[in-house]
């Protein structure tokens, strides 16, 4: 069974629905407080997927996700690099995306700053997948998910960043126009993936759309888009661990 670890930190608040969504997609999920994991970092190596869920880690004091990103860098970086040597995945949702970005796990070319309107914003957005390498968004093109954040504006240092997810308007074009682009993200970026396709961070919440009834309106498609993203991750790990013939001996 695919094993996922949700990293709990003080102020995290989307952990339960993230857990339920991954369980619905067939993974077994544990949640460990960051304080406990710091004491025994090797625990991370027992898992296939590391999830940094949404919320306000450490109250978002200083800036969104900043304090947890400092702890990631100081106490967990080496273990995460070790973890990535296997066929594993890392997913950061909303605050988790902010943590991934600020800890440098998604490169050093972008940051996330406060929304252009200076406010927290909860709304459903339309998105387009622009990166074929990303394991999480495989087979997806145009999707809908809710965002809910105050600090989701992507700022690019310089050059071009390979966006995986872009906010789009009614003509399906990446846009800077509010409310389609809810936070003023440069290049309409809603989420990015590393070059390997295995580390993915996004502002929208896939775990808030793993059931059809979570959609505002009538949902006619078969599988909710959030569930597709999560299922992609679980299926990929499942296929890889059996393909490579490596079965983990470690279990509790």
């Amino acid at each position: 069974m695919v094993r996922a670890l949700i990293l709990y930190a003080p102020g995290i608040n989307c952990d339960l629905e993230t857990k339920t969504a991954f369980q619905t997609c067939g993974a077994s999920v544990d949640e460990i407080p960051v304080k406990k994991l710091e004491e025994q970092t090797s625990k991370l190596l027992l898992y296939d997927i590391l999830i940094l869920p949404g919320g306000f880690s450490y109250g978002d004091s200083i800036s969104s996700g900043k304090i947890l990103s400092v702890y990631m860098r100081e106490f967990l970086k080496e273990t995460v690099l070790e973890f990535l040597k296997r066929d594993t995945l890392v997913l950061g949702i909303c605050n988790g995306f902010q943590v991934l970005v600020k800890s440098g796990l998604l490169g050093h070319d972008i940051t996330l700053a406060e929304n252009a309107n200076g406010r927290f914003e909860d709304r459903w957005v339309r998105l387009r997948v622009r990166n074929s390498r990303c394991i999480f968004t495989k087979g997806l093109d145009i999707i809908e998910l809710p965002v809910a954040h105050r600090g989701g504006r992507v700022v690019i240092k310089d050059g071009v960043v390979n966006a995986t997810l872009a906010y789009i308007d009614e003509q399906d074009k990446p846009t800077m126009e509010y409310p389609y682009n809810p936070n003023g993200s440069e290049d309409a970026i809603a989420g990015i993936c590393d070059d390997s396709g295995r580390i993915f961070g996004l502002m929208p919440h896939p775990e808030r759309f793993y059931l059809p009834i979570q959609y505002p309106g009538t949902w006619k498609d078969k599988i909710p888009h959030g569930m597709k993203i999560i299922k992609n991750a679980v299926d990929w790990v499942e296929a890889h661990t059996s393909l490579s013939g490596v079965h983990r001996i470690i279990d509790d």
Binding site: E17, T20, R119, D122, A148, R208, Q214
Partner: peptide
């Protein structure tokens, strides 16, 4: 005003604000 509140955290808000006179929620556990 309404959009400044997270009305969907916990994943159980079935009828959300702005859409109706009252809210419908399905608690997750």
């Amino acid at each position: 005003l309404v959009r400044q509140y997270d009305h969907e955290v916990q994943g159980g808000t079935i009828i959300k604000p702005l859409l109706a006179d009252a809210a419908v929620i399905k608690p997750l556990p």
